[in-house]
Design a protein around this nucleic acid. Structure first.
Lengths: 236, 236
DNA sequence: TACGCTTAGGTCAATGCGTTGACATAACTA
DNA sequence: TAGTTATGTCAACGCATTGACCTAAGCGTA
């Protein structure tokens, strides 16, 4: 069983019952169409079958499973993230902008967010992103090994936080959680939780996204770790 | 339909076909047993039914859905995380230890990791953890509002990273990904990716966990943001 | 052109999954 | 004792995935 080796070298072009000739790219298109359909999350293998005019199981001739299909869709989206990004003069600001771009892009496609956070797409777009990010840290003065390590830390933290922000809870679930939290925070005993008591009025902010704060902290830490810019002998 | 209001106020104790009298705590126990069963991830509603000697759908009289059941199980585990934790003299070290504890606990129960990262359990254990964490930052000299905000950032980042580390890929998936990555990193063109080229020898480290590095960065940033310890007038 | 072989790839049926609505009945209440 | 209702049970839905099958596309040969 050879799978997902692209469309070019496929030779047997057998039409489905409804006459369509399948192509990997058609399946990716259809999947993206369903993902972005109004109502959201309309992508299921069965609906994909209907959308394509083929038996649902035909999809498995092209992608090992739903995961593999989603990865193919995800690689299309990384380019979207990079499209409108140009590194600027200040590496800190550029890194921040990159982080925000990734975060936004992932919120735009929650279904793919977790996948993008943990899987390597092996596509050229992912490499491009790494090249840009590591380039920024090299420019900041980090040695290559440190630049790689720090960028890995940075981008993985951004991806993980973004994936969490992107997760969609069931209808009403989020409000229910917030209400439960507000109630608990309003009613705990000062003796049992003395530290929380001191901060009681500020606990509500706990429900807002941690992303901006974490982004600040990561860049702060990198700034602190960056080699200090001073004249070195080879700069004579 | 009233659900999951604990066991005490339940009045109709009707036995299942096999004679068992159900209790919420029994269901949680059984779920935890299945989660920790050899082979892992053995928890399904249907198996839970068998384990309990009841129809699978009976579980839905006690928990709204699988998610609600998992949250109940998760609250049990937070106490496990806190059990062997005692804040020490240095707030930075204590925070680091707390982060590591959460990370370890989540890796121990991957099935529950994502849930713990995004949902509020409304249980006393979660409150306790918040109280301890915010206490550490208050001790570091942060004003209450800042302590809350910074701890939220810290703990959410730790949870998000841990959730990512905990995700289990399909069999062979992880190796396949690493191999694909190693191949791509070994063979890209120096001209297309000049920055990656400068760091070529160091790219392999990209596959190790970002958790320790991110933990360092978060604590570094907090240390930097902490009010400097100097004599203040009220300390006379 | 014709014939037969191999096999990619479309289809079908079945598995186990979470979840739900209808139903049955035992357990409490008046 | 009759009525109410909590709670167990059953059958069904749509889901992803898979193994068996079937058939036509393409190939080699004459």
């Amino acid at each position: 069983m050879t799978i997902s080796r692209g469309g070019a070298d496929r030779v047997r072009r057998r039409p489905t019952r409804s006459g369509v000739i399948l192509e990997p790219s058609m399946i990716i298109d259809a999947a993206l169409r369903l993902i972005e359909a109004p109502g959201g999350n309309a992508l299921t293998v069965r609906r994909l079958g209907v959308e394509l005019g083929a038996d649902p199981s035909a999809i498995y001739r092209y992608f090992r499973d739903m995961d593999a299909l989603l990865i193919a869709v995800a690689d299309r989206l990384i380019s979207e993230t990079l499209a409108d990004f140009e590194p600027g003069a200040d590496w800190r600001e550029s890194l921040r902008e990159m982080g925000r771009g990734v975060h936004d892009s992932m919120l735009r496609h929650p279904r793919l967010a977790q996948l993008r956070a943990i899987r390597f797409t092996a596509g050229p777009n992912e490499l491009r992103a790494d090249d840009i990010g590591i380039g920024l840290l090299l420019r900041a003065g980090f040695a290559p090994a440190d630049a790689v390590r720090h960028f890995r830390d940075f981008i993985d933290a951004v991806l993980a936080l973004a994936a969490m922000d992107a997760i969609e809870l069931g209808p009403g679930q989020e409000e229910a959680d917030k209400r439960a939290l507000a109630e608990v925070y309003a009613s705990f005993s000062d003796e049992d939780y003395p530290n929380l008591a001191k901060a009681r009025d500020h606990l509500t902010q706990i429900t807002s996204s941690p992303f901006p704060g974490v982004l600040d902290k990561l860049i702060d830490a990198l700034d602190r770790a960056a080699p200090k810019r001073k004249k070195r002998s080879r700069d004579h």
